[in-house]
Design a protein around this nucleic acid. Structure first.
Lengths: 347, 347
DNA sequence: TTGTAGGCGTTATCAT
DNA sequence: ATGATAACGCCTACAA
C-alpha cells in the first residue's frame, strides 16, 4: 500500500494525497476528508524511509540517550517529551549502550532524520572532541559539562558533580564521620565518575582527613550487584569505616544489603549515602540519603536552551542546575552519643 | 557525500561501490581495498533510509518492547541481544509506550525494515486481534499467552500468570494468612493484570476465603508511588490484613514503605509479596518475597522458537516457562506463635 | 485546487 | 568483475 494505491483508490493524484496526509495547504476540504478516510480504513502509513530520504528538513528534535536502564535519564526523557509535545516539534528518542559512541550515532542520525537540534543525555568528552565537529546543529548535552569544549553550537546543562560530591562528603564529615569508604564508577571511562572522585578527594583534603585509595576506594560498575560486592571487597581488604559514600544510588542500595549481611545496620552502625536522587530511594527503609539531581529542571532547561538556539539563534550556554543534599534516614549524626568508632565486621 | 561521490573519487561505478561496501561477492580485491579506504578516510556512511527503501529483505530480527522502564523487559532484551549476537542476524530494538499499539507499530516496521521475524516483549490481545493479520512473518510474544489467538505465525512464551498468582496466594495462606489485601494493575487494560487478579480469586475461592473486591482490592499503575498510595487507601477504607499481595514488585516496594509509615513492620506485622523477581528485590532489607519470572529463560526460548521458525519453517509453538515462588524475608509464617490477627493501623 | 514529473541515495537487474 | 539503469515510496516544484 503506497500513496499511489491511495491515489488510485480515491481518484486523486499522488501529489494531492501527499499534501493531504501531511496537512499542507491548498487541499480542498472534500479531498482531504476523502483521502484521510481512505487512509484510515486501509490502515495506510507513510513510509518513513522514503519520506526522510526526500525531505530536506524535518520538524524533529532528536534525543540521544546514552545508557538504557538509567532511571535518571528515563525521568528526563519523560519531562523532555512533555515539553516538546507542547511545541510544534516532535521528539525522536534514540537509545544506545553506555559504551557506544553517542556522537557518531548522532552524526548518522543527522543525515538520516535531519533534526533541528539534538539533546544528548549523557556524553563522553573524548567522543565529542573526536567527532562533534561534523555536527553544526544546535545541541545540548545534559549531565555533562561542555563549557570547555571548543564548539560554538554545543550547550550544556549539568549538576556540578564535583561540588555535589564535595558537599555530600562534607555533610558526612559534619555528622562526625571521618572514616568514609567510597564506592565509585570507572574514572577512566566516565568523566562523571572522575569528577565525583575528585570531589571526594577535595573534601577529604580540605578537612585534613587521610584517604588511602588503595584500601578505601572501590571503582565498579553502576549496579546493585557491584555495590554489594564492593562492600565485601572493602571489608575483606581491612577497610574500616563509619560511613560509605556511593557515587550512584543503585550502588548504595547494594551496599546497604551487603552491610546487613555482614551484621552491620544502616544507619546505626554505618551511614550510607548515594547520588542521583532516584524516586526509589525515598521508598526504601531506611530512606536513602543522597545528592538529588534535579532531573525535571535539567530536562526543562535543556529543552529551553535548545529551542532558543533553534528559533532565535541564541548562542550556546552552559548552565548549572542546583543539587540538593537529601539528609534522609540512611545517615546518622555520630558527633554525640555513644562512639562506635569503626564498623569492621565481627566475624 | 554519497556513493556517487565515492564512485567519482575512486573511478568505479556506483554498483561496485555498493557491492564493496556491503561485502558482496564479485568484487576484486583491488577494488574492495580502494573503495573501503576511500570510504574510511572520508567518514562515509550509507544512508539507511535509501538503503532500506530499496532493500527487499534484511538480516534483521526486530524486538518490539512495550514499556520502557520495565526492568524485566530490560533484562530480557539484554539476554536476547546476547543470543542474537551469536548468530548471523542483527537485533533491532524498538521501544514504545505502555499504551501505544505494538502491533501497528510492528506493521510499519515490517514495511520499513523488512525484518526476518519479530519478538514482542509484552502485548495486548485486542491489538493482536485487530491488526496482526497484516503480518506474515514468524513472530513470538513473550509474557503474553497467544495460544488461543487465530494466527499460525504467532508463537508465545509465557509464565502462567494465573497459576503463578494462585500459587503465591496459596503460599501466603499456607503460612497462616487469611486476611490478604491485593494491589493489582488495571484489569481493563492489561491481560496480565486480569489473569493475576483471576489467580487470586481462584485461590481464595478454593480455600473458602471471602474477599471483598471493593474493600480489599486496589487497581493502580505499576509504580512505587501507586503501591504506596494503594496501601494508604486500603487502610483508610477500613481494610484489615496480615498480608499484602502486589502483582508487581515495584508496587510491593511502595507498599512496604507505606506500611512502615503507618507504624507497621514487614514481615513482623504484615507480610508482603510481589511478582516479577526483579534483581532489586534481593538487595532490599527485608528481601522481597516474590514470584520469580525466569527472564533469562523466557528470552532464550523466544529466540530459539523464532530462529527455528525462520530457518526451518517450524510451526508456531506456545511454551510456558516455570515460575518460582521465592519465599524471602518479607513474608512470615503466622501459623504458630503469637497470634497478631490483623494489621489495622493504630492511629 | 489539482496533476505531473524529477529526484532523494541506495540496491538490484541487467548487460558488458 | 564491472558498468549502466531502473526502481524503491515519497516530496516538491512547476504546470495546468
Amino acid at each position: 500500500m503506497t500513496i499511489k494505491d491511495l491515489a488510485a483508490k480515491t481518484g486523486y493524484a499522488v501529489g494531492t494525497i501527499s499534501r493531504a496526509l501531511n496537512g499542507h495547504p491548498h487541499v480542498s476540504e472534500k479531498a482531504r476528508k476523502a483521502i484521510l478516510e481512505a487512509a484510515r480504513e486501509s490502515g495506510f502509513q507513510l513510509n518513513t524511509n522514503a519520506k526522510q530520504l526526500k525531505q530536506t528538513h524535518s520538524t524533529t528534535i532528536l534525543a540521544v540517550v546514552k545508557g538504557i536502564g538509567n532511571e535518571l535519564f528515563g525521568e528526563m526523557v519523560e519531562t523532555i517529551q512533555n515539553h516538546i509535545a507542547q511545541t510544534r516539534y516532535q521528539l525522536l528518542v534514540d537509545y544506545l549502550d553506555e559504551d557506544s559512541n553517542e556522537v557518531t550515532r548522532a552524526v548518522q542520525l543527522c543525515r538520516e532524520r535531519k533534526p533541528l537540534g539534538i539533546i544528548f543525555l549523557g556524553g563522553n568528552t573524548d567522543n565529542f572532541l573526536r567527532d562533534f565537529a561534523a555536527i553544526d546543529l544546535p545541541c545540548v548535552v545534559v549531565t555533562h559539562d561542555a563549557s570547555s569544549l571548543p564548539f560554538a553550537n554545543l550547550s550544556s546543562v549539568t549538576t556540578d558533580d564535583l561540588q555535589a560530591t564535595r558537599s555530600a562528603i562534607d555533610t558526612l564529615i559534619s555528622m562526625g564521620h571521618s572514616r568514609i569508604a567510597i564506592i565509585g564508577g570507572n574514572r577512566q571511562l566516565s568523566d562523571t565518575s572522575r569528577l565525583r572522585y575528585e570531589g571526594c578527594m577535595q573534601a577529604f583534603a580540605s578537612h585534613g582527613i587521610p584517604f588511602d585509595s588503595e584500601r578505601d576506594y572501590q571503582g565498579v560498575r553502576y549496579s546493585y550487584q557491584d555495590g554489594y560486592r564492593a562492600v565485601q571487597t572493602l571489608l575483606d581488604g581491612g577497610c574500616t569505616f563509619t560511613a560509605i559514600f556511593a557515587s550512584a544510588d543503585v550502588m548504595a542500595i547494594g551496599a546497604i544489603r551487603a552491610l546487613w549481611d555482614h551484621g552491620l545496620r544502616v544507619p546505626e552502625d554505618v551511614s550510607v549515602m548515594g547520588v542521583d536522587g532516584l524516586p526509589l530511594g525515598s521508598f526504601l527503609v531506611p530512606q536513602l540519603a543522597t545528592v538529588v539531581q534535579d532531573a525535571a529542571k535539567l530536562a526543562q532547561q535543556s529543552v529551553a536552551i535548545l529551542l532558543e538556539a533553534i528559533e532565535q539563534g541564541c548562542p550556546a550556554r552552559h548552565e548549572i542546575v542546583p543539587f540538593v543534599i537529601a539528609r534522609r534516614e540512611s545517615i546518622r549524626d555520630i558527633t554525640q552519643g555513644e562512639a562506635k568508632p569503626c564498623a569492621k565486621a565481627e566475624f
